[in-house]
């Protein structure tokens, strides 16, 4: 019996794909299990989705190939986002961009922005949104 393998990947949806049943196709056509951990997708906008996708290797390869063919790019979630403390001015512009509340003001007295690594899904939205280049993506 072939063993089930799983991958954590982040999908990047071009805006023309946001209304297509891509996840449904992965499940039905390729017999894969998809666990959506984070998503930020709107009508007619680019979107991102972080999923854990698992199944038999040949099905997984075929499913990922399907994504490539239709133009949904993806990358493994092995990237890590870091905050460069000396560059952060604690303005809070990032806090309304972060889809997973990893960037937040925990104490409204100090008004300091905290970066909670455990909540970060490495989507990278904060990187261009930070006016001071304080957020970086690393391998």
């Amino acid at each position: 019996m072939k063993s089930v393998i799983s991958k954590n990947i982040m999908l990047h949806y071009p805006k023309e794909h946001t209304e297509k049943p891509i996840i449904s196709n992965l499940i039905k056509r390729y017999d894969l299990t998809v666990n959506i951990s984070r998503a930020r997708i709107g009508q007619d906008e680019e979107g991102i989705m972080v999923i854990e996708v698992s199944g038999k290797k040949q099905n997984l390869d075929a499913g990922l190939n399907y994504l490539k063919e239709i133009g949904v790019t993806f990358k493994p979630v092995s990237m890590v986002v870091l905050m460069v403390d000396e560059k952060c001015t604690h303005c809070s512009a990032c806090t309304v961009i972060c889809p997973s509340d990893a960037l937040t003001i925990e104490d409204r007295n100090t008004m300091m922005v905290s970066f909670i690594q455990d909540k970060c899904i490495a989507c990278g939205l904060c990187i261009p949104a930070c006016p001071y280049h304080a957020m970086e993506m690393h391998e």
């Binding site: 001015t89 604690h90 303005c91 809070s92 512009a93 990032c94 806090t95 309304v96 003001i105 409204r108 100090t110 008004m111 300091m112 006016p131």
Partner: peptide, 19 residues
């Protein structure tokens, strides 16, 4: 961090730094 506008609670962020 949250302000009511037109009856909706909206998440607020600052571009200037209070700290």
């Amino acid at each position: 961090g949250t302000v009511k506008i037109l009856g909706e609670n909206v998440q607020a962020a600052s571009i200037s730094s209070y700290p």
